[in-house]
């Protein structure tokens, strides 16, 4: 009896966990890019529709510039890496359907790019920065799994934001 009850509980637990992982995702929008002078890095700020949840993702300079060029709709004279990536997919009509920030583990975010090619759907592992840079260029939505949002404690960010001066904010965050 005891064994089966433990087994049942563990099964239920697994079911709940997988339901959360598969079903609960929230659409996010890129609200801005900020320079983080303390870490000499950039932060991509994602927020949900209701502005209730915030996801800060730290990225390097070149990744930030790839996202910023797409956000500002700047066409560089030569194709940058993510423009090239987009041309590669366009050449054979592979479509980016969405990108999902899937996990957060020891301060590292994980993402997947969902694509439609011929009649199949593919989910391919990616860094969030590449996924976001490609999603903006493809007009594809960006989602975050609720487990990531839950894991991300916004307290840390808020505290950090308090220390920021207005000039630290980029023009996108106005």
């Amino acid at each position: 009896m005891l064994d089966s009850s433990i087994l049942l509980r563990s099964l239920l637990h697994q079911l709940t966990e997988s339901a959360v992982n598969f079903v609960m995702i929230t659409q996010m929008h890129v609200k801005g890019l900020m320079f983080d002078p303390y870490n000499n890095a950039y932060i991509v700020v994602l927020r949900d529709e209701d502005q209730a949840e915030m996801l800060p993702i730290w990225v390097g300079k070149s990744e930030a510039s790839a996202i910023s060029l797409a956000l500002e709709n700047v066409a560089p004279p030569r194709p940058m890496t993510h423009d090239f990536m987009k041309s590669f997919l366009d050449a054979y009509n592979a479509k980016v359907i969405s990108t999902v920030i899937t996990d957060l583990n020891e301060h590292t975010y994980f993402a997947k790019v969902h694509l439609m090619y011929e009649d199949s759907e593919y989910a391919i592992d990616s860094r969030p920065s590449d996924a976001i840079a490609l999603a903006i260029r493809s007009d594809a939505p960006i989602f975050a799994s609720d487990s990531v949002i839950r894991k991300q404690s916004s307290e840390e960010l808020e505290q950090w934001l308090e220390n920021l001066k207005p000039e630290d904010f980029g023009k996108l965050d106005s």
């Binding site: 993510h82 090239f84 990536m85 997919l89 694509l115 593919y122 391919i124 990616s126 590449d130």
Partner: peptide, 14 residues
């Protein structure tokens, strides 16, 4: 996967 690894992975999948 860095950016060019991602392009390579797209190619391999498709």
């Amino acid at each position: 996967p860095m950016s060019h690894d991602l392009i390579k992975n797209f190619g391999e999948h498709f």
